[in-house]
């Protein structure tokens, strides 16, 4: 087995880079959601999405987490998850939904580059995600 200082250093560098990327996304997300919550803005967003989110077994404010995950990335969604108090089963539903479908802006481009068209991958992933939410929301 090869383990050199170079390899460890490269891993450390990548890890710290990811942490920086994470901080750049997660800090503002947490901040904005905290701000929204204390100003009451979150409640209006929540009540707007509540009728839709109930089919997924989720409270209205979870819409912010789902959208952050779909369009930005999982770090942004996690920012929302650590800020809002969610029940265990709600965390579980969100985790499965976002597992199927996340970072769409980036990953659809990557998939496309590797030969899978967006018109195929997007319905596949979004469909799996919403279906999973629907099934789990009904079960839990």
């Amino acid at each position: 087995m090869v383990i050199s200082r170079e390899i460890i250093y490269r891993g450390l560098q990548k890890g710290l880079l990811s942490t920086w990327e994470l901080a750049k996304i997660l800090m503002p997300t947490v901040f904005i959601i905290t701000l929204l919550r204390t100003s009451g803005g979150l409640e209006s967003v929540a009540s707007f999405f509540a009728p839709l989110m109930q089919y997924l077994g989720l409270p209205g404010e979870a819409a912010i987490i789902i959208f952050s995950g779909y369009f930005i990335n999982l770090y942004a969604a996690i920012g929302g998850m650590v800020t809002l108090e969610l029940a265990t089963n709600e965390m579980l539903i969100i985790a499965v939904m976002l597992g199927f479908c996340h970072s769409l802006l980036l990953e659809l481009a990557v998939s496309k580059k590797a030969g899978a068209p967006i018109s195929y991958i997007l319905p596949l992933r979004a469909g799996a995600s919403i279906l999973a939410g629907f099934v789990l929301g009904g079960l839990l």
């Binding site: 891993g11 942490t19 920012g79």
Partner: peptide, 20 residues
């Protein structure tokens, strides 16, 4: 925010080393 960053960083950094 910092708590969230720390929660993830302590996983991501060792993980990246193992992956390398």
């Amino acid at each position: 925010g910092l708590l969230g960053v720390w929660t993830i960083a302590r996983i991501v950094v060792p993980l990246m080393i193992v992956i390398e």
